[in-house]
Design a protein around this nucleic acid. Structure first.
Lengths: 115, 115
DNA sequence: TAAATACTGAACCATATAGTTCAGTGTATA
DNA sequence: TATACACTGAACTATATGGTTCAGTATTTA
């Protein structure tokens, strides 16, 4: 087994592609939380929640620390800067494309097209 | 088989979690392209490229149209606005957390901690 | 010290992803 | 009309995801 983990953006976008994990980030934005409290809020087993937290940790979006028997989760220092940068840069590409003349022309000849 | 497809953000973040697909978006930002030309550029079989394009289409990031025997891919009108909005809103949460006093305090008592 | 709490790890299940090959179908071109 | 081209679909492989249960271990607390 090779276990190639992918680039940082691969990991963070994958982490954000699940509504539960986006919810966990929401929640941690309101305060740190244990695995148990997160599992309660999202109606999930401890083990299931632990896996979600691990995905967020691998992506650097969350950090955890175990003190005594409680593992506390908080938002990671890494933040969402790299993701925001990629999205902003490419949002411009989308906009630039739609301002192009050929877009208007292709809208005009919208008849008799497949699929 | 139920085939529950997930919310729009689920689909688009998942689509963006692969470097090849992010590359396809880059490329389409420079101009529309056929499946064949994309497959050539990313050194992949036609079938493989078609699957990537389908993932981008399901997410609304790309639209395609077949004319004759060529399927042309272009950036979708949907754009990255919803994604940018989510990221920006949550980026603030990350920043707010780090400005909080308890953060500084917890940095201070950083000794004798697990994992 | 006994019991409850909080987590951890292994194992399992169903489905999705990322890729392939191979065998087509339909379209353009020589 | 024969050939080449562009795509499509089915089938297969390996791995990841999202969830579970069950059986632990370690830490509090009564």
């Amino acid at each position: 087994m090779v276990q190639y983990l992918g680039s940082p953006l691969d990991l963070s976008f994958a982490a954000l592609s699940d509504a539960t994990r986006r919810g966990i980030i929401d929640q941690l934005g309101r305060g740190d939380a244990s695995i148990t409290s997160l599992a309660d809020q999202f109606q999930m087993t401890l083990t299931g929640m632990k896996k979600h937290v691990q995905v967020l940790e691998r992506a650097g979006l969350v950090v955890t620390q175990k003190v005594g028997r409680v593992r506390t989760c908080k938002l990671g220092k890494r933040g969402l800067n790299a993701e925001a940068e990629w999205i902003e840069a490419h949002r411009k590409l989308f906009e630039a494309r739609f301002e192009a003349l050929d877009e208007i022309i292709s809208e005009m000849k919208q008849e008799g097209s497949d699929d």
